[in-house]
Design a protein around this nucleic acid. Structure first.
Length: 803
DNA sequence: AGCACGCCGACT
DNA sequence: GTCGGCGTGCTC
């Protein structure tokens, strides 16, 4: 095997295939499929993934691999195959499929520089260039561009005085710590100490330290301990009395934390019934998908933990997926508490280096369990025994950039390979999953009651239109206000939830109704209070807030969209005695602040926790007896067929935060549309009825789970070009599919223009279309090939956002 | 995606 | 005649 097929790190249609390279003799036994390599590609050097080895190639003039970037494959056989599967199913470039499986730290960094050719003196260059090369004979290309000397450099390169160098680098280095250890025996140490000059006080100190404590020690500890500098130690190293060595260490994000070990808890009867089929599948290595449907507080996590216990005892591994916002310290504690050092955690709060280190623990099989957000589904385990997806209905499991995969689909694909079970857990399952459970595609397991048999808290729905009619113009209903006061008096805690999503704060003129729009995108600008600016979330356009309306010069400018900050201000006015903790992107930006704010709330340092999405999940504090939802319907009117489902899920989720312990809880939901079934049924916490209602809706409008969706979005600078291209695509799709399929379009996207590009779309609804993937592939091939038409086509199979 | 190559207009 | 503008096509 002397030839390697390589997928190169160039995300483009034309390079989306394997390129063959000769393996130099010295690497012939080293290079294997799944390794990253540096290869020459045109004039540059870039990173690539070896996907297979072979004896022959159709290409005659092969170039040689420059060097391997790994000592061992970082993608095993299964993951390489999974990459192919991803490519085919999400229609993405191969390179994206492989990159998504690895921590960002392993993505290549490229450097281009110019240096003196070997044997060439700096005097050979024109005088004006000397200053750039005096330092080390090298010049970064970026600096050359800045100084406008590129053409000069090119001339010298042509003459052979200079050469261009392309370097492939790793983004993050492995963390190394320097250790110092004695190289000679204690007796020799004593002897050497005597030989030292009288004034070498510090060196003597170091030697006597090692005589006393004859063991390696980390350099920084040694330096701190003896109050010396590294140079003292260096001197002894130079005399070969001491030796230094670099030891690779992990950045441990949980280094200074101890976890209280927990034991398996006795299961309730319901839990017992639910866990049995899972354990059975684990024992017998059966691939089966379970839908664990259990109300909030019914003890799903204990079922996960005990199933994993079984898997570990069998010598296998487990992946647990949790939505990013639910990956709270509380959640991590439960897993670390039960399995200790066998757990790796992967979430966005970690630095790139920390993520890389957690990932390496998995790869080296030092851990048995991974708890993480979406991308943790690619954890490089090789003996998977179970995959658990908590809060299965969460939309964050779908990635919205390439590769546009859904973690649930990847989980099932991997579980098939390993012949192991998948457990999908939720109190409010997605309609898709529940429908599959009804059709016996998934195995339904139910936990109908909360543990300790607490009842779900009573929910009251307040009609805010009524409040308005009766003269209450504040954002708090009278009832909620009274109850807030009551809880403060009783020294109990309240969670106030504000759903801001889809309701950006925009600025409108109250006289003429003028709304500030982005000049490049057909979307209103969002008001940012921090620097008093208007920003476009799609292209980054910024402008100042106008003092007067640009249209009618009126000064009655109003800020719409209630933000958490505004609620906090209002609370300060009407309930000045209340201590409030606000949690949103602004207050939790810094590392660890999320955790700290929750800790403060838990310790009773505040009466009210006010926040967005991020407080809807996982909060479990005994003193919370009131949950208030300020406006339930902010996302009900979005152009999204899932908006009812999302509203119901969110309201149910939030309600579950109250009264989880001894004290009974209450929930207040404020809304402008109390008659909507998703609000009403969230009030009675009746998932089954909601499911039936929503299924009727979906059936009527040909939406999932009755139909699959695929969305093609086409964009171009000219409106006419997009419309005609979309028309062509719609016709083509229609001609290739069965009459059963519904092909909608051309229609303008919900955001009809982004960054001065018009956007049109074609939505396909279908049940079974074996031709569809090839059809979509053909379209992509067609349009990605010719870049000169200026048309951009992107395809989302099973889209979650129709924009 | 880069980058070279190549073909045209504006200069020393 | 040469420099440098950007359109076209290739990268094992």
């Amino acid at each position: 095997m002397e030839i390697a097929s390589v997928i190169v790190d160039v995300p483009a249609k034309q390079t989306d295939r394997a390129f063959d390279y000769l393996i130099p003799d010295k690497w012939r036994d080293t290079i294997q499929p799944g390794m990253r390599v540096v290869v020459p590609f045109g004039p540059r050097n870039i990173q690539g993934f070896v996907i297979e080895l072979k004896k022959e190639s159709e290409v005659k003039q092969l170039r040689e691999i420059i060097e391997p970037m790994d000592l061992e494959p970082i993608l095993n056989h299964e993951l390489l195959a999974l990459g192919n599967w991803l490519t085919e199913n999400t229609l993405c470039f191969k390179i994206f499929a492989y990159q998504v499986m690895l921590p960002a730290a392993l993505k290549a960094k490229y450097e281009k520089l110019v240096k003196l050719a070997p044997g060439v003196e700096i005097s050979a260059l024109p005088l004006s260039l000397h200053s750039y090369f005096v330092k080390n004979g090298k010049l970064d290309w970026q600096d050359a561009l800045k100084n406008g000397i590129v053409s000069l450099l090119q001339k010298e390169t042509a003459k052979g005085h200079l050469e261009v160098q392309y370097i492939v680098k790793e983004k993050v280095r492995k963390k190394q710590r320097k250790y110092i250890r004695p190289l000679v025996s204690q007796a020799v140490l004593t002897e050497e100490m005597g030989k030292l000059p009288v004034n070498a006080e510090k060196q003597k100190q170091v030697i006597s330290f090692f005589i006393e404590r004859f063991a390696p020690i980390e350099m920084r500890l040694l330096v701190a301990e003896l109050n010396i500098t590294a140079s003292t130690v260096k001197a002894l190293v130079g005399k070969r009395i001491l030796g230094e060595e670099e030891v690779e260490v992990y950045r441990d994000p949980y280094e200074h934390r101890s976890f209280e070990r927990t034991k398996p808890m006795p299961l309730t009867k319901d839990q017992q019934t639910a866990i049995e089929p899972i354990l059975n599948a684990v024992e017998q290595n059966l691939h089966e998908v379970f839908l664990l449907y259990g109300v909030t507080g019914s003890g799903k996590t204990e079922i996960y933990l005990q199933s994993i216990q079984e898997v570990i005892e069998k010598g296998q591994e487990a992946i647990v997926l949790v939505p990013e916002i639910a990956l709270t310290p509380q959640m991590v504690n439960r897993f670390k508490g039960r399995f200790g050092d066998l757990v790796a955690v992967l979430h966005s709060g970690l630095s790139a280096g920390e993520k890389y280190d957690e990932w390496r623990k998995i790869q080296r099989k030092e851990v048995k369990v991974v708890v993480g957000a979406r991308s943790a589904i690619f954890a490089p385990f090789e003996n998977l025994g179970i995959i658990i997806i908590d809060e299965e209905h969460e939309t964050s499991y779908k990635q919205e950039e390439m590769p546009r995969y859904h973690a649930r689909d990847v989980a099932i694909e991997r579980a098939k390979t390993y012949s192991c079970p998948v457990v999908l857990g939720s109190a409010t399952p997605s309609l898709e999953s529940f429908a599959r459970a009804q059709k016996k595609v998934y195995h339904l397991l139910t936990l109908p009651t909360r543990m300790n048999n607490q009842t779900l808290p009573p929910v009251e729905i307040i009609d805010m239109r009524e409040e308005l009619r009766e003269g209450n113009r504040s954002m708090f209903s009278r009832k909620l206000f009274d109850m807030l006061k009551d809880r403060i008096e009783k020294k109990q805690q309240t969670v106030l939830f504000l759903n801001k999503r889809g309701h950006s704060s925009f600025v409108m003129c109250r006289d003429c109704g003028y709304v500030m729009n982005c000049p490049n995108c057909d979307i209103s600008l969002t008001y940012h209070r921090v620097n008093e600016q208007m920003k476009c979330h799609y292209c980054g356009y910024e402008s100042f807030v106008p003092k007067a309306c640009p249209e009618c010069s009126s000064e009655h400018i109003r800020y719409f969209g209630t933000g958490t900050q505004k609620v906090e201000d209002e609370l300060g006015k009407i309930l000045p005695e209340a201590r409030v903790i606000r949690m949103d992107v602004d207050t939790t930006g810094r590392k660890g602040s999320h955790e700290r704010l929750l800790k403060d709330f838990q310790d009773g340092k505040a009466d009210i926790l006010l926040g967005t999405q991020m407080i809807a999940k996982g909060l479990d504090f005994p003193n919370i007896t009131l949950v208030g939802v300020l406006s339930a319907d902010t996302m009900l009117h979005l152009p999204d067929f899932r908006s009812s489902e999302k509203t119901f899920q969110l309201l149910t989720q939030v309600s579950g935060r109250a009264g989880r312990h001894q004290l009974p809880g209450e929930v207040i939901i404020q809304t402008y549309t109390p008659e909507h079934y998703s609000v009403e049924l969230a009030g009675t916490q009746d998932y089954d009825l909601f499911y039936q209602q929503e299924m009727l809706n979906r059936k009527m409008h040909h939406y999932p789970p009755f139909y699959f969706l695929s969305l093609i979005t086409i964009s171009h600078e000219q409106l006419l070009a997009v419309v005609s291209a979309t028309e062509k695509i719609v016709n083509y799709v229609q001609s290739r599919l069965s009459p059963e399929a519904v092909v909608l379009g051309p229609a303008a996207s919900p955001i009809p223009r982004i960054n001065n590009r018009y956007r049109y779309q074609c939505l396909i609804k279908y049940k079974r279309e074996p031709n569809l993937t090839t059809t979509l592939r053909t379209i992509l091939d067609q349009y990605q090939k010719d870049t000169k038409s200026g048309l951009q086509v992107s395809i989302d199979v099973n889209p979650f956002i129709l924009m």
